[in-house]
Simulated scan of single mutants.
Amino acid sequence: MGVTQQPTTREAQGTYREERAEQFIVFLHHECTKDKLLNELMSADKAALFLVADVEEQTTDMAPATQAFIDTLKAKGWKGDLYSGHDTYKPLDMDKVKADFVWIPRYGSNKPACPCDLWQYTETGRLVSSNVDLNKLTGSKLLSYFTGGSLMYSKPLNR
């Protein structure tokens, strides 16, 4: 990443935070073949705490393929996690996938109707001078689960 200290300007701080976020999560889109997945895993940031299967559209028999994807992630030492659209979760049979956590985007005030650990409730949150996605913990996992214990919280936030 090349960032060794936090910059001082507001715009540079936003860029720094975005680069630091890459240490916590790397999105790998599901349409990767197994060979592409293994290549992506080789180049994934080793500091990433988890990788997320982003499944939002039909490209194959989704549930078995997604499970195989997540199982491959876990076999390589990462948490195997699922990000799926609220409207595609059930139709794509994502409820049959066993993931370490489930992350569902549903913008507005209505919580997802399906069980999830993270609810992405807006794409227009503000951080410095940029719009960002904002999420709430909705399951039983503490914030430290997602940050590797680097933040000192004893209870879930925004419950």
Rank of each mutant, 00 (worst) to 15 (best):
Gly80Asn: 03
Phe24Tyr: 15
Ser84Val: 00
Ala68Met: 06
Arg20Ala: 08
Glu56Gly: 05
Glu31Ala: 00
Ala44Glu: 09
Cys32Met: 02
Leu73Lys: 05
Arg126Asp: 08
Asn110Tyr: 13
Pro64Leu: 02
Arg17Tyr: 14
Lys34Ser: 12
Tyr16Thr: 03
Ser130Tyr: 15
Pro91Phe: 06
Ala21Met: 11
Asp87Pro: 01
Val97Gln: 08
Thr8Ser: 15
Thr59Tyr: 15
Glu123His: 04
Lys79Val: 04
Asp61Thr: 04
Leu82Met: 02
Arg10Gln: 13
Leu151His: 15
Pro115Asn: 10
Lys90Cys: 07
Leu37Ile: 03
Gly139Phe: 01
Asp71Ile: 05
Glu22Tyr: 11
Ala75Lys: 05
Gln120Asp: 13
Asp71Gly: 04
Leu73Gly: 12
Met62Phe: 09
Glu18Thr: 06
Phe69Lys: 01
Val102Cys: 08
Lys76Met: 02
Asp87Gly: 04
Met94Glu: 10
Thr59Val: 14
Ile70Val: 13
Ser140Trp: 03
Thr122Glu: 06
Gly139Trp: 01
His30Lys: 01
Met152Asp: 14
Thr147Glu: 09
Gly148Cys: 01
Leu28His: 07
Glu18Lys: 07
Glu31Met: 00
Ser130His: 15
Ser154Cys: 02
Gln5Trp: 08
Tyr89Phe: 15
Ser154Asn: 11
Ala12Trp: 08
Leu38Ser: 00
Ser144Phe: 07
Val132Ser: 05
Cys114Tyr: 13
Thr60Glu: 14
Lys34Leu: 13
Gly14Arg: 10
Gln58Asn: 15
Lys96Ser: 03
Arg17Asn: 12
Lys79Arg: 12
Ala113Lys: 05
Asp61Leu: 00
Leu118Tyr: 10
Asp81Tyr: 01
Met94Ile: 07
Ser129Cys: 10
Val55Tyr: 10
Asn39Ala: 13
Pro115Phe: 02
Pro156Phe: 00
Arg20Asp: 08
Met42Gly: 11
Gln5Gly: 11
Asp87Ala: 11
Thr88Phe: 09
Lys74Gly: 00
Gln23Trp: 14
Thr9Pro: 09
Ala12Thr: 06
